[in-house]
């Protein structure tokens, strides 16, 4: 596509039922220069929160006891701090629909919901006007300490009640529906009484959220825990699925057996492409996203993967029609 001919508009709000790619700082300049032929971009919300003005100080030292806030009331902008990443995201948003994907809200945590974090997310939503907002079925903090990881929940009635209330509260505070993504896991609790696919379905039914079906995570869990990934896919009501994630994982072989680790550092494997094909057959036309978080390749590789997702979905939808 000739990027120059594309109208720069902020009206492209909705995420189309095509493949998008993740927006990474390494690709900021390339994206704006090339305006690649992908349907939309996903941005990790926290990367754009920015840092608040914290008083002029010498780096690395604690702030002086002086409270600058009393000096000039209303003299400076108290809105969302627009750091360099946000500037790029706004530029990209001028050309593409954007989805905001959170990784740090820790919805499954037993700590109180992180309101300051939610407030920043709400400010970002207001500024970017994303087509979709998503988070994870996991927890990443307890007693105020964060682990920067998506930790697993047991699938119990207690967890379900907890997640439903957290997702509902989040949607109320944001004033919009969110999508919840099924996470990958390397263990299963004996206390779990509900199959994962029933858990996510009940969560969507009871909280009114939609599901972000990560087919790579389904595949990883199916291999790690020994269930049929198609059983998961077919058990989820099609109308509850608002988005699909695709990613690469790493197969690790130990003396004790094989474990699939959700690394997001390579191309989507054939088995996951096949599962994607089956998923599209079940849920129909929904947006899909190529996730790639570490060992980032050139932008062209991500675009290639997105085209492959589009081709698979296109063929499948045609066959169904």
């Amino acid at each position: 596509m000739n990027g120059q001919s594309k109208p720069v508009t902020n009206s492209m709000l909705n995420i189309p039922a095509r493949a998008g790619i993740g927006l990474r700082a390494l690709h900021f300049d390339d994206v704006l220069k090339q305006l690649p032929d992908v349907a939309w971009f996903e941005a990790h919300s926290e990367n754009y929160f920015g840092f608040k003005e914290s008083g002029f100080k010498e780096s690395g030292f604690k702030e002086s006891s002086f409270d600058k806030s009393g000096i000039i009331e209303g003299g400076f902008n108290n809105d969302m701090p627009a750091g360099i990443p946000l500037h790029y995201l706004e530029k990209v948003r001028g050309h593409y629909p954007v989805s905001l994907h959170g990784v740090g809200l820790s919805l499954g945590s037993t700590d109180p919901l992180n309101k300051p974090h939610l407030k920043k997310l709400k400010q970002l939503i207001h500024r970017i006007e994303p087509g979709l907002v998503s988070e994870h079925l996991s927890w990443s903090s307890v007693d105020g300490q964060y682990f920067n990881d998506l930790l697993p929940l047991p699938y119990t009635e207690e967890s379900l009640t907890h997640m439903v209330s957290r997702v509902s509260e989040t949607q109320d505070l944001l004033g919009r529906q969110i999508l919840i993504e099924n996470a990958s896991s390397y263990l299963e609790f004996t206390s779990s009484t509900i199959p994962e696919w029933e858990f996510v379905t009940a969560l969507a039914q009871q909280s009114g959220c939609k599901l972000l079906l990560d087919v790579n995570n389904i595949y990883v869990n199916a291999m790690n825990h020994g269930f049929d990934p198609l059983l998961f896919v077919h058990s989820v009501p099609a109308e509850m699925v608002g988005e699909i994630h695709l990613a690469g994982h790493t197969v690790k072989t130990f003396d004790e057996g094989v474990l699939l680790i959700d690394t997001h550092d390579q191309r989507v494997c054939d088995a996951v492409w096949a599962l994607y094909d089956d998923t599209v057959a079940h849920v129909g036309d929904v947006p899909a996203l190529i996730e790639w978080d570490s060992h980032l390749p050139a932008l062209a590789v991500l675009v290639e993967e997105a085209k492959r997702a589009d081709a698979i979905a296109g063929e499948r939808i045609e066959r169904i029609a």
Binding site: P154, Y186, L187, E188, F189, T190, S191, S192, N224, H225, G226, F254, E256, G257, V258, L259
Partner: peptide, 16 residues
């Protein structure tokens, strides 16, 4: 919390 064990592997809980 104790963990379930899939038939195909022999990972100890701690390893997981």
């Amino acid at each position: 919390p104790a963990l379930k064990h899939a038939a195909e592997n022999r990972f100890a809980d701690t390893q997981r």
